[in-house]
Amino acid sequence: MIINNLKLIREKKKISQSELAALLEVSRQTINGIEKNKYNPSLQLALKIAYYLNTPLEDIFQ
C-alpha cells in the first residue's frame, strides 16, 4: 500500500487544495480524492505535484 503524505506536505507549505488544483490544472475534487487515497494519480500528475510542492516524489508517495 502506498503511504500518501500529500495533505501533510500541502498544509505545511500553506497551499490550499484549490490553489494546488489550479496549478496542476485539475479539480479540487481530484486533489481531495488523492489525499483520501480514493484516487491514485498518474505518474505525470504525481511528478507535477512533486514539482509544484518542491518536494521529492518519494516524500509525497511512499
Rank of each mutant, 00 (worst) to 15 (best):
L45R: 00
L6V: 08
L53T: 03
P56Y: 06
I3M: 11
E19P: 00
I34P: 01
K13S: 08
L47F: 07
E58D: 09
M1G: 12
A50M: 05
S16N: 05
L20W: 02
K38E: 14
I34Q: 02
I2R: 12
N40V: 15
I2V: 14
L53W: 02
E11A: 08
Y51L: 08
Q62M: 13
L6M: 10
E35M: 04
P41F: 07
I9N: 03
A46D: 00
K7E: 10
I34H: 01
K7G: 08
G33A: 15
A22I: 10
P56Q: 07
A22K: 14
F61P: 02
T30A: 07
I9R: 02
V26P: 00
K36M: 15
L53I: 03
K13F: 12
Q44S: 13
K13G: 04
N40Q: 15
I15K: 05
M1L: 14
Y51W: 12
S27R: 08
Y39R: 09
S18N: 11
L24C: 15
L45K: 00
N5E: 03
A21P: 00
Q17L: 10
G33T: 08
N32L: 09
A21N: 02
Y39F: 14
I9H: 06
N54K: 10
N54D: 15
L53Q: 00
I15P: 01
L20M: 06
A46S: 06
S16E: 05
G33K: 15
L53A: 02
L20F: 07
S18F: 08
K38V: 12
Q62E: 10
K7L: 07
S16V: 03
E58K: 12
I60P: 02
L23G: 08
I15E: 01
Q44W: 11
Y39Q: 09
L24S: 05
Q29E: 15
A22F: 10
L43E: 08
P41V: 09
D59P: 01
I34W: 09
I31P: 00
E58P: 08
E25Q: 15
R28C: 12
I60E: 01
N5G: 04
N40H: 14
K48V: 04
Y39P: 01
K48N: 06
M1Q: 13
E35L: 04
Q44V: 12
Q62Y: 11
D59I: 11
S27T: 12
L23R: 09
F61R: 02
P41C: 09
I31V: 11
K12F: 09
Q29V: 09
Q44H: 11
K12V: 07
K13R: 12
R10F: 05
N40G: 12
D59V: 11
L6W: 00
I9F: 08
K36R: 14
I31A: 01
A22H: 11
G33F: 14
A21L: 02
I15D: 00
F61C: 04
F61N: 02
V26M: 04
F61S: 02
I9G: 02
I60W: 03
F61H: 02
Q62N: 11
L57A: 05
E25K: 15
I49S: 00
E35A: 03
I60T: 02
E58V: 09
M1T: 13
V26H: 01
L53N: 00
E58Y: 10
M1P: 12
E11G: 07
Q44M: 09
Y39G: 05
K38T: 13
Y52E: 05
R28L: 15
T55E: 10
N54T: 06
K36E: 15
K13D: 02
F61Y: 04
Q62D: 09
K38Y: 14
F61V: 03
I3G: 12
K36Y: 07
L45D: 03
K36V: 10
I15Y: 07
K12G: 11
I9T: 05
K36T: 15
I3E: 09
S16W: 05
K48A: 10
V26S: 01
A21D: 01
L57M: 12
S42R: 06
Y52G: 03
L43Y: 11
V26I: 11
L23K: 08
N4G: 05
K48G: 06
K12T: 10
S42W: 06
S18A: 14
L45C: 06
L24V: 15
L23M: 15
F61A: 03
A50L: 03
K14I: 05
L45Q: 04
L24N: 00
P41E: 03
L45P: 00
G33S: 15
L53K: 01
S42K: 06
Y39H: 10
V26Q: 02
S18H: 10
L53P: 03
E25C: 14
K48C: 09
I60Y: 02
K14V: 04
P41I: 11
N4P: 05
T30K: 06
I3D: 08
P56N: 08
N4K: 03
I60G: 01
L23A: 15
L8E: 15
K48D: 06
E58G: 11
N4L: 05
S18L: 11
Q29L: 10
S18W: 09
E25D: 13
N4M: 05
L24T: 12
N5Q: 06
R28K: 13
N32Q: 15
K13C: 12
L23E: 07
I34K: 01
N54A: 11
E58C: 13
V26R: 01
S42A: 06
L57I: 13
A21E: 02
K38L: 15
E58M: 09
Q29C: 12
L20K: 00
E19V: 09
R10C: 09
R10A: 04
I31M: 05
N40T: 15
S27G: 07
Y51I: 08
K36S: 13
Q44K: 14
E19W: 06
N54C: 10
T30M: 13
N37T: 07
A21G: 05
L24D: 00
E11H: 08
K12A: 14
M1D: 09
R28Q: 14
N40S: 14
N54G: 13
N5L: 07
N37Q: 13
N40A: 14
N37I: 04
S27N: 08
I2C: 14
Q29S: 13
L57G: 02
S16L: 05
L20H: 01
L23F: 13
S42H: 08
I9K: 01
E25I: 07
E19S: 10
N4E: 03
N4V: 05
Y52R: 04
Q44F: 10
S27D: 11
I34F: 05
Y51M: 11
L45S: 01
T30H: 10
D59R: 08
E11T: 11
K12P: 01
Y52L: 14
I2L: 10
L57K: 03
L23H: 13
Y39K: 07
Q29N: 13
E19H: 13
E19R: 14
V26D: 01
